[in-house]
Amino acid sequence: MTTPILELRNVNKSFGPIDVLHDISLKVHAGEVLCLLGDNGAGKSTLIKTMAGLFRPSSGSVLMDGKPVEFNGPREAQEMGISTVHQFGGTFPLMSIGRSFFVGVEPTRGFGPFKIYDRKKANQIAVKAVQEFGITRIDDGDRLVGGLSGGERQSLAIARAVHFGARVLILDEPTAALGVKEAAHVLRIVLEARRRGLAVIFITHQVMHAMTVGDHFAVLIRGALAADFKKGEKTREEITDLMAGGEAMAELEAEIESHLKSHEGYSPAA
């Protein structure tokens, strides 16, 4: 068995008196898509933020390539190869594709105080990187990011992360706001990232999306790891039940009625 790229050992996270994550142990390997499942408020976002250096675990440890690491902020995690792509790509709508691709690491020509941003080179590399992921519709680096569709933006953000050497790609609900076709695009890109040997951590509420790309599934229920299994080990129904918080959907549906009455349509799982 190879050493996992990223491993969590007995990680706990609490915000003051509120315990959000309980004793999570999880391994992510290269060339593998880990689907992180769980109901709203189960702690998925908190878990990935802990991996991405936004939060420090209250206790427990994070290991990269088998060595314990501590991130002082998302920058450090990024430098070690952990990239998070937020919903809508976290990019800059009114900047060009080339400029937003290279934010912070702009290619330049010239020297000293006369360094000039190399627009041609930036556009060329950015467009090439996105096209290699199969998004051939993007062919002009001067287009503004805000003019791209949601799926194209996600793809651009993923291509950017991969270009800058990401080894672990964290995607928090990348398909949530997308139509069927756009979502399929993003899923294809997730598979392409896996093919290139990245470890992908993929959060979704859609069972179909999870089953399409997932190799390995982890289910969180109220901050605890309720299940951790490989592809093919569970049926679609079992996964659906787990995603709903470990209750059988049939039972749940019966409960919805009464829930709606007491909670005005929203069910907090705290």
Binding site: T91, F92, P93, S100, F102, V103, G104, V105
Partner: peptide, 20 residues
């Protein structure tokens, strides 16, 4: 210059700009 790119990035999305 690259410096200008940072100003636009910052105004577009401060958190992403800092993360970049």
């Amino acid at each position: 210059s690259p410096f200008g790119n940072w100003i636009f990035a910052m105004g577009g999305d401060k958190v992403s700009a800092r993360n970049a």
